[in-house]
Design a protein around this nucleic acid. Structure first.
Lengths: 161, 161
DNA sequence: GATACAAGCTACAGTAACTGTTGGTTCAAG
DNA sequence: CTTGAACCAACAGTTACTGTAGCTTGTATC
């Protein structure tokens, strides 16, 4: 069937920008489609499906490399899906880690804000708390937000730098 | 007092890399410190404190721009801390949004994995689910992971692209 | 057929917040 | 005096795109 779609339609269908589609093509995540006489890309339904797959996986937080792996897996449909399962499990573990960490952050932020009674900057606990890692309940190890730390305890007040 | 520290010590104290400190200096987040005769940066305790502030705020997920704002606030200690409070509240709202979203992701990932009973790729639900946004409970609006979407419902099976 | 405007094209720069690399200098220890 | 670690500047690379510039193509209207 010759229902050939231009890039904009496909972008709308998959919920991304035309630029993004070209980008995926450029990095080899999408195959280069045929072109019209005027050199415009023409897509079919299979392309939309593959793009939707990619977008959906991205929304689930899979990095492009993992998506690449999943795609290459799905090109060998007779194998067991152990590997796909492993990728998904990894992603789940990652999401779990991020949730736990964000909850710790949330906690500290809330405490910070609660204590701030709208005084002057000089006594602002938001600012003071940020200078003082010792009171912090954030525990970070190997996170998506790649942090590392090792804080000393500074004197209580920040004052002027 | 002349307890002058080289960049490596400061990096250890604040839990970051020397590179990062130079980067912060470069973008104006840290003032350029004096140098030794051999052109090496020499820091004092105030610098460590400021750096700790920055690192801690970063661990809490504040973007550098927000940190910049907080620093410039703290340079005017006689104002009210309304603005600092607002920044923190914003950050909290952001963290909340991210947590909610990650929990939705977690949910879908878990379902995906649970359903995958180790068959062949051809029937793998991990892969199939990713191709099918219609089953998805992920709802995304204005997120840190800047996604947008608008999916159509593709036919049930992916098969070959 | 002329014109206007949207949508497409390529190529490149920019984003955040760093990290890594290269190739050279300085410092402290032995 | 010689290692070797720590420092220096400058720049490239990372991730996953997004934005811009300057052009061409496609479509709708007059």
């Amino acid at each position: 069937m010759a229902n050939a779609l231009t890039i904009g339609r496909v972008a709308d269908a998959a919920g991304c920008k035309a630029q993004t589609i070209r980008y995926y093509e450029q990095i080899g995540l999408l195959p280069a489609p045929p072109r019209s006489e005027g050199n415009q890309r023409l897509y079919d339904d299979a392309a939309i499906q593959r793009l939707s797959f990619i977008r959906h996986a991205r929304q689930l937080g899979f990095p492009l490399q993992a998506i690449r792996d999943l795609i290459s897996l799905s090109d060998r449909p007779e194998q067991t899906c152990e590997a796909a399962d492993a990728i998904a499990r990894q992603q789940l573990a990652d999401v779990d880690r991020r949730i736990r960490r964000l909850q710790a952050l949330r906690h500290e932020l809330e405490r910070m804000i609660e204590q701030c009674k709208g005084g002057r900057i000089a006594d602002c606990l938001v600012i003071e708390t940020l200078g003082d890692h010792g009171l912090c309940d954030v525990d970070d190890h190997g996170d998506a937000e790649k942090t590392n730390r090792n804080a000393q305890r500074p004197p209580k007040s920040l004052g002027r730098w």
